[in-house]
């Protein structure tokens, strides 16, 4: 019995694992090199050949049925601005329902808070703040050079653009949608001598909004 077991063990030991298929080896190598998502020439050619075979067109009945389903919704080509969650192109202002637009309210509140905090954090360029002793009408001019003692007198922020940059999984547990918001901050600075200048600065903020990607 023991001899048979030993013989069996020797037979099994002599067996060698099969070599990896060339294609699998190639994919493993690509994974190790970080090039798994890059197709080789053969794959690109084959892909192009398959793509030339078009999916069957939708039947007229199905198109009509789908059109009836999307009635009232602006077609994708007409929507040029990415709204905050909860805001639609055709929504009337007086019909806003807070409990259903809470994500929008949260996003807007976050941006307002950031704007207020930024206004407090914005330091005069190059030195401490000074009280302007006498009022003098300085000329307004826009200049890239900043004198040592200045005070901000005006601040404005304009929202330029919002973009949906897709979904990420920062912790692999919960998907977050990345919203890119572009502003233009404009600050009017006043020097000691009363002259003013404006500073414009683009500003980009990224917001991670927890989302259900389905």
């Amino acid at each position: 019995m023991k001899d048979k077991a030993n013989e069996l063990e020797r037979t099994l030991h002599d067996q060698q694992a099969a070599e990896l298929e060339k294609a699998l080896l190639g994919r493993l190598q690509a994974a190790a090199e970080g090039t798994l998502t890059e197709l080789n020439e053969d794959e690109v050619r084959f892909e192009a050949r398959l793509r030339s075979i078009q999916p069957k067109r939708l039947g007229s009945q199905l198109i009509a049925a789908l059109e009836s389903k999307v009635e009232g919704l602006p077609a994708p080509n007409q929507v040029h601005i990415l709204p905050f969650p909860g805001i639609q192109a055709h929504e009337k202002v007086h019909q806003t329902r807070f409990h259903q637009t809470a994500p929008w309210a949260a996003a807007a509140a976050a941006i307002c808070l950031l704007g207020v905090l930024t206004a407090f954090w914005l330091d005069p360029l190059g030195g401490p703040a000074n009280t302007v002793g006498k009022s003098s009408s300085g000329s307004n001019r826009t200049s890239s050079a900043s004198p040592p003692l200045t005070l901000p007198t005006e601040f404005s922020r304009a929202l330029s653009q919002t973009q949906d940059k897709g979904i990420i999984w920062p912790s692999n547990d919960e998907p977050h949608r990345v919203i890119k918001v572009t502003y233009t901050d404009k600050v009017t600075m006043k020097r000691e001598d009363g002259s003013t200048y404006e500073v414009e600065k683009p500003r980009v903020e990224y917001y991670l909004v927890p989302t259900d990607s389905h």
């Binding site: 919704l73 909860g86 259903q100 637009t101």
Partner: peptide, 24 residues
């Protein structure tokens, strides 16, 4: 396919859809 389109329309109209038409 029709059910998926209905779901999309419902989500967009109710304001629950996060993202623009690029995400449809």
């Amino acid at each position: 396919l029709q059910d998926a389109v209905v779901k999309l329309v419902d989500k967009v109209n109710s304001g629950e859809f996060v993202g623009g038409s690029d995400a449809w």
